[in-house]
Amino acid sequence: MTRPTARVLALLEILQGGGTHTAAELARRVGVDERTVRRYAGHLLDLEIPVESVRGRYGGFRLARGFRMPPLMLTDEEALAVLLGLMPGHSTPPREAAGTAAAKVQRVLPRALAARLDALFATTEFSSPPAAGAAPEAAVMLRLAEAARDRRPVTIDYTDRAGRRSERTVHPYGIVAHSGRWYLTGPDSASGDLRTFRLDRIVHVRPEMGTFAPPDDFAPADVVRASLAGTPWRHEVTVAVRGTADEVSARLPRGIATIEPDDADDGWVLVRLRAERLDWLPGVLAGLGLPFVVHGPAELRDLVRTWSRRLADCAAATTSHEAAAAWDR
């Protein structure tokens, strides 16, 4: 979207809030001069949006009374983020308020986009509240959802956990949001076996001809959970943290770990997770802002010591050269 177009839409958004706004106020909020505000108001009039110019000391611009809101102007990504944020269990509003707000948003979306989002929510199982900010590309999600709804095969470009890229034809039985990630499950043409694919590793989706019928008793979420449970990981991590389960969970990235009471120490919990790499964990542990003890693996304790030494040396540095040397020691 070009900048002038974005500013015209920003002006419309302000006017939709109701009331009369002076040209000076609108210029300040949109980031242009008053003459440009008047030109933008003319653009809206050209689009048959009834912007009224009110004369006098308290005059300015407003939308005509009784004007019906146009379709909500959101990109696919923005609309998806809004609706995911309103899902029960993920949103700040109460469950009922979040549900009615989501319904109102969907009603004012353009028809084509609303239909694609309906397909996503109709074909997705949420085993835990999704993390909107962690969602993969909206285009990938929506194309897969339409294929799952229509029972059409798709060809995907996929990168596995080892970094190998391949092209696969899949029957998309369903989409699952689990522990902050999104998964596709269905038979894979390469092996003929039921597979689970992470959506953030899919870069292209191409619908194919034909149809398929999943088994009547197929439960996508159960398949994804079973697949993840059987996935081999290089490291099993256990860390004791002082605090309650709710307190520690709120300070960890969503869905990366399980938390349980530590029977050996009252007021502490055990954080358990599996990881392919450990280099990102020292920063996560430091970000807790709580005392912790690394029970294993020993390699993580070494990484935490190295990370803390680097931080201390960088804090003592007074030049970029000293900081770089301290970090590389």
Score class of each variant (00 low, 15 high):
2 T>I: 11
2 T>V: 08
4 P>V: 09
5 T>E: 09
6 A>L: 12
6 A>C: 08
7 R>A: 09
8 V>W: 01
14 I>R: 10
14 I>F: 00
18 G>T: 03
26 L>F: 04
31 G>S: 05
31 G>R: 08
32 V>G: 05
32 V>S: 06
33 D>W: 10
35 R>P: 03
38 R>C: 01
41 A>T: 07
46 D>E: 15
49 I>L: 11
62 R>H: 00
62 R>N: 01
62 R>S: 01
66 G>H: 14
70 P>M: 09
73 M>G: 01
85 G>Y: 03
93 P>I: 10
95 R>S: 08
100 T>A: 04
101 A>F: 05
101 A>S: 15
102 A>C: 12
108 V>N: 03
109 L>R: 05
111 R>L: 08
113 L>S: 01
115 A>V: 00
116 R>T: 02
116 R>D: 01
116 R>F: 01
117 L>Q: 02
117 L>T: 01
120 L>E: 01
123 T>W: 11
133 G>N: 12
138 A>E: 04
141 M>E: 04
144 L>H: 12
149 R>S: 02
150 D>A: 15
157 D>R: 15
162 A>E: 12
164 R>Q: 13
168 R>S: 12
173 Y>Q: 02
174 G>Q: 04
175 I>Q: 00
179 S>H: 13
189 S>Y: 06
191 S>N: 08
193 D>Q: 09
195 R>W: 05
195 R>M: 12
196 T>V: 14
196 T>D: 05
196 T>H: 05
199 L>N: 03
202 I>E: 13
211 T>D: 05
218 F>S: 02
220 P>H: 11
229 A>W: 04
238 T>R: 15
242 R>M: 10
244 T>M: 09
244 T>W: 04
246 D>K: 10
246 D>E: 14
250 A>V: 07
252 L>S: 09
257 A>F: 05
261 P>D: 05
266 D>I: 06
267 G>E: 07
268 W>T: 14
268 W>S: 14
274 R>N: 04
276 E>C: 06
277 R>K: 14
280 W>M: 05
280 W>G: 12
284 V>T: 11
285 L>E: 00
287 G>S: 04
288 L>N: 00
290 L>P: 00
290 L>V: 02
293 V>H: 11
293 V>W: 08
296 G>E: 00
300 L>G: 04
301 R>D: 10
302 D>V: 14
310 R>F: 03
314 C>D: 03
317 A>I: 10
317 A>Y: 10
320 S>G: 12
323 A>W: 01
328 D>R: 15
329 R>Y: 07
